[in-house]
Simulated assay, not measured.
Amino acid sequence: MEIIAVIGCGAMGRGIVKNLVKSGYRVYIYDASEAAVRYCEELGAIPNASSYQAAQQAELVITSLPGPEIVNNVMLGAEGVFAALKPGSFVLDMSTIDPKTAQNLYESAKGQQVHFYDCPLSGGPKGADEGKLTIMVGGDEVHVSAFRPVLDSIGENIFLLGPSGSGQVAKLCHNMLVAVIKAGLGEAMTVGEKAGLSRGQLAEVLQSGSAHNRVLDVFGDNILKNEYENVLFSLAHMSKDIHLYTETADYYQADSPLGQMVSGMYQEALKDGKGNLDSSAICDSGSKIIT
């Protein structure tokens, strides 16, 4: 497997492209953003006029897209990725979507003799750039060995989790916990500041005790400065993911009181105009606490 198409070359996709090219793959790309395409072209990727055209030339397609609706639009229909691919080809969707959509796409791909896997990511743009992503894989395990080298070229921790949709369930559960931790940090930092502690003092205590968390390691610079223009993962995207988490909980008939609560907090932050800030802006000392 030497020829790969990457559709979606944004913050995550460009790191994926970089490491695929570095690993010796021939990489065709498509993105609606001309700037994203130019950036990846400079890395050695080959631009295409559409996702259909990029997929036509590939044995395996990786997609990194904003959400379920656009993933459906890119995959399905006469000009969709599934229609463009030869039988026996692979699609690894590295977007964050809901498991129901992933399962439906798996069935649609199967009808066209294409192997579809949900492969959402963790590690952010930095992890993508360094080829150190965590990849959560849902789909038929029997075929994974065929594309495992592709995963290894962009990821450091690969988890084969079960049937279609399993990767998305893991990713949404992961992001729900990240969202809850960020909201908790925001409240704790605000209370600490009101009582006279600096954010730095409190963070040092937290990271030395049982409350130690990687969220503060990754997003700490934003949180400690109480400045959120440095976007590692946008608040709008986190809000979308937590909404998908609550929908997934409903789909599986599971209670999600914490998910519902934190989803409300992120929705309120969106209304306050913080969608384009980093998701750690939920820790803004001016944020409202929603109960």
Rank of each mutant, 00 (worst) to 15 (best):
M238T: 02
F116W: 02
L60V: 07
S198T: 15
P149W: 10
G200A: 12
I242P: 01
K126T: 12
S285M: 10
A254S: 12
G264A: 11
I16H: 02
G10T: 06
E107I: 12
E34F: 11
L270I: 13
G123N: 00
L177N: 11
T291I: 15
V231G: 01
G220M: 03
A211Q: 06
S89H: 03
Q168K: 09
A203E: 01
V191L: 13
A58V: 00
V231R: 03
S263G: 14
A236T: 08
I289P: 02
S280I: 08
S263E: 11
A11I: 13
S263A: 15
G10E: 01
G8N: 00
T190L: 10
K86V: 10
A183D: 14
E130D: 12
S210C: 11
Q201R: 06
G259Y: 08
A269G: 02
D118M: 03
M1G: 04
E130H: 09
I282H: 11
N230Q: 14
Q253R: 10
A281T: 05
L277M: 07
I135Y: 01
E193T: 12
T101W: 10
I97H: 01
N157M: 09
G123C: 00
N19Q: 07
E227H: 15
C173L: 13
G131D: 02
I290Y: 08
P257F: 09
R148E: 15
I158F: 03
K171L: 04
G196N: 09
D98V: 06
I135T: 05
C283A: 09
C9M: 07
G167T: 04
G13I: 04
S210D: 09
D98K: 05
G200F: 13
L92F: 05
A179V: 04
T248L: 02
A78S: 11
Q267V: 10
K132R: 14
K132P: 03
K100S: 05
Q253Y: 10
I62R: 00
S23C: 07
P99K: 08
Y106G: 03
C283Y: 05
G259F: 08
D272G: 15
S210A: 14
G165E: 04
E156K: 14
N213C: 08
M1A: 05
M75E: 06
P66N: 11
N48W: 10
A78F: 12
A5I: 01
Y39W: 09
L197I: 09
T96K: 12
L232Y: 12
N175I: 00
E156Q: 14
S153M: 05
E247R: 08
A5Y: 00
S285D: 07
I70F: 07
G10M: 04
S285K: 12
A36S: 10
G220E: 04
Q260W: 09
D272K: 14
L133R: 01
T96Y: 06
D98A: 03
E229S: 15
E41D: 09
G259S: 12
Q253D: 14
Y228Q: 11
